[in-house]
Amino acid sequence: MSILETRQFRWPDEAACERFAQALARCPQVSDLSIELEGGLGAGKTSLVRHLLRALGVQGRIKSPSYAVVEDYQPPALGGLPAHHFDFYRFNDPREWEDAGFRDVFAAPGLKLSEWPQKAAGMLPTPDLRLTLDVADDDSRDVCAEAHTPRGVALLTDLTQHLDAA
């Protein structure tokens, strides 16, 4: 899987994660995008998803899909398209992805957010964007954003502009 563009970000605190999610929500590409989120336990993957879904207008409880594998939402800001939050942490075999029928979900329009994508390795389509979150010694987060598609490159450009304007 080739990387077309890479950008580095730093979140010194939770508020920076929230600002990043809000900037991401303002990018038009987000309505039909696949984003993979990598990082260890406690790196902030689910926090980012919650902030993003809130910024897209989701009300009520935003649950972690750790046990259900996927939680579905209808964010008002996506113009009728769905958002799917996947957590593949409990997968023991990547073929579980196929058995669960997720191929159709990933082929349809909408936002797909995947935590622990390596647990479904070889089954997931190429993501538009991969975000790798690393916890630094001072508890801040170093975020590496990799665009793997032209849509991901456009998103990174828009995202950077929104963050610079904030």
Score class of each variant (00 low, 15 high):
residue 1 M to L: 11
residue 4 L to E: 09
residue 5 E to K: 10
residue 9 F to M: 04
residue 12 P to V: 09
residue 14 E to Q: 12
residue 15 A to H: 14
residue 15 A to R: 14
residue 16 A to T: 06
residue 19 R to L: 15
residue 22 Q to K: 12
residue 23 A to F: 07
residue 23 A to I: 03
residue 23 A to W: 09
residue 23 A to P: 00
residue 24 L to P: 02
residue 25 A to W: 05
residue 26 R to A: 10
residue 26 R to F: 06
residue 27 C to G: 06
residue 30 V to W: 07
residue 31 S to A: 15
residue 32 D to C: 05
residue 40 G to Y: 15
residue 43 A to P: 05
residue 43 A to L: 12
residue 43 A to F: 11
residue 44 G to S: 15
residue 47 S to Y: 11
residue 47 S to M: 13
residue 49 V to C: 05
residue 51 H to P: 02
residue 51 H to L: 13
residue 54 R to L: 07
residue 54 R to I: 00
residue 56 L to M: 07
residue 58 V to S: 05
residue 58 V to H: 02
residue 58 V to G: 01
residue 62 I to K: 02
residue 64 S to D: 13
residue 65 P to A: 12
residue 66 S to P: 06
residue 66 S to D: 15
residue 69 V to E: 12
residue 69 V to S: 09
residue 70 V to Y: 02
residue 70 V to K: 03
residue 72 D to R: 14
residue 72 D to V: 15
residue 73 Y to N: 04
residue 78 L to Q: 10
residue 78 L to D: 09
residue 79 G to R: 13
residue 80 G to Q: 10
residue 80 G to E: 11
residue 88 F to E: 13
residue 92 N to S: 15
residue 92 N to P: 09
residue 94 P to W: 15
residue 96 E to F: 08
residue 101 G to W: 14
residue 101 G to V: 05
residue 104 D to W: 08
residue 106 F to I: 03
residue 108 A to C: 11
residue 112 K to T: 00
residue 112 K to I: 00
residue 113 L to F: 01
residue 114 S to K: 04
residue 114 S to D: 04
residue 115 E to F: 01
residue 116 W to R: 06
residue 117 P to T: 03
residue 118 Q to D: 06
residue 119 K to Y: 09
residue 120 A to K: 00
residue 123 M to H: 07
residue 124 L to K: 03
residue 126 T to D: 08
residue 127 P to D: 02
residue 128 D to Y: 05
residue 128 D to H: 09
residue 128 D to A: 05
residue 128 D to C: 02
residue 130 R to T: 05
residue 130 R to V: 03
residue 133 L to K: 00
residue 133 L to V: 00
residue 134 D to V: 03
residue 138 D to R: 02
residue 141 R to C: 06
residue 142 D to L: 13
residue 143 V to W: 01
residue 144 C to D: 14
residue 145 A to T: 01
residue 149 T to G: 01
residue 151 R to Q: 10
residue 153 V to I: 01
residue 154 A to M: 05
residue 154 A to L: 04
residue 156 L to W: 01
residue 157 T to I: 05
residue 158 D to Q: 03
residue 159 L to E: 02
residue 161 Q to I: 02
residue 163 L to A: 05
residue 164 D to N: 01
residue 165 A to R: 06
residue 166 A to G: 02
